[in-house]
Simulated scan of single mutants.
Amino acid sequence: MRHKTLVAGLGLLLTLLLAACQPIQAPAAAPAAAQEPAAPVPGAGRLILATTTSTQDSGLLDAILPDFEAQAGVAVDVIAVGTGQSLKLGEDGNADVVLVHARNLEDAFMQAGHGVRREDVMYNDFVIVGPAGDPAGIQGSATAAEAFAKIAEAGAPFVSRGDESGTHNKELAVWKEAGIEPSGDWYISAGQGMGAVLTMANEQQAYTLSDRATYLARTLEGTDLVILVEGDPVLFNPYGVIAVNPGKNPAIQADLANQFIDWIISLPVQEKIAQFGVDEFGQPLFTPDSAAWRNR
C-alpha cells in the first residue's frame, strides 16, 4: 500500500514538473468577424444579353458577337431562353439588353417602362415542319390556321414549345385563329428551346412550328422533318433589340447596352446578317431590317 502511494506521489510530481516546463501560450485570439462578400462591380467588362433561342441555335450570335466584343473590349454573356423569359430577365433588372421576337410582348414591355429604347433589327419567318409522309395532309394548306386545324382533326402529334417564347406566342395565335384550344395526347408541350423541340419532333415524327433559321441550321446536323407550310403573312417573324431601363438595377450597363444597339443596327453588321447562311443554304437565315438598312 505504501509502495502504491509512493508511486502515485512520484507520478503526480512528474506531471507537475512537465507542466511547468511547457512554454506559456498567449490566449487564443477571438475569431475574426466574417467579412461581407464584395458587391458586384458595375461595368466589370461584360454585357448581359438575354435573347431568344433562335439567335443562338441558328449560329448567328457565334458569327457576329466576336466583332462587338473586340470593338467594345468586353465579353458578352448570352442568356438564350424564350422571348418571354428574356423579357422577364429585363423586367427584373437581370439583363442589360434583350434581343427578342414577339412584337406585341415587346410593345407591352416598353409601355410598362421596363425598356428605354427599342430598334428593329431583322426578320425571317416561321414555317410548319413535319414528317415527309405528312399524315395530317397539311401540305398545300392556304393558311397556317388551316394546317393547324387539319393536324388537330387528325390527332397527329404536334410538339409545342410551351415556354412563352416568341415562337410559342405565335403558335398560340395561330391556334386561336383556327378556333381551336389544343389538348389531348397528340399535343405535346415541351417547355424547351427551338433546337430541342425540333429534335423531339424528329424523333416522334411530329409536326411543329419553327423559325426558319433554326430549322435550316438543324438540317446541317440531319433531320427527317421537311417544310410543309410557309408563306402565310401571319408567319412573319420580326426581331427587335431593347435597352433595359437602368432604373431596374444600378449594375445595368446602360451605355454599353446602347453601344450594342448602335452596333447591331449599323450598316456593317446588318450586311453581316444579310450574308449569314448564304454559303450553306443559298439564302440568308435573317433579313436585315434596321432603320439604317431600310434607308441606305
Rank of each mutant, 00 (worst) to 15 (best):
L6W: 07
Q25L: 14
P27Y: 07
A30N: 11
A30Q: 15
A30G: 07
E36G: 03
A38G: 07
L49F: 01
T51P: 13
T52S: 09
T53P: 04
T55K: 13
Q56E: 14
Q56A: 14
D57F: 09
L61F: 15
I64D: 00
A75C: 05
V78K: 06
L87E: 08
G90W: 00
D92I: 12
A95G: 01
V98C: 04
V98F: 02
N104L: 13
M110S: 12
M110K: 09
G113I: 03
V116Q: 05
D120I: 01
N124E: 04
V129D: 06
G130Q: 07
P131T: 07
A132E: 15
A132V: 13
G137C: 10
A142M: 07
A142G: 04
T143V: 09
A145E: 01
A156K: 12
V159T: 06
K170S: 13
V174Q: 04
E177C: 05
G179M: 03
I180H: 10
D185S: 14
S189K: 13
M194E: 15
L198D: 08
M200T: 12
Q205H: 11
Y207V: 07
T208D: 02
D211F: 00
T214R: 03
A217F: 01
R218S: 14
T219H: 11
L228H: 11
D232G: 01
P238M: 02
Y239P: 04
V241Y: 00
V241F: 01
V244Y: 00
V244K: 00
K248Y: 00
K248R: 13
N249A: 05
A257L: 06
Q259G: 12
I265C: 01
I273T: 10
D289A: 15
A291I: 04
A291H: 10
A292F: 08
W293E: 08
N295S: 15
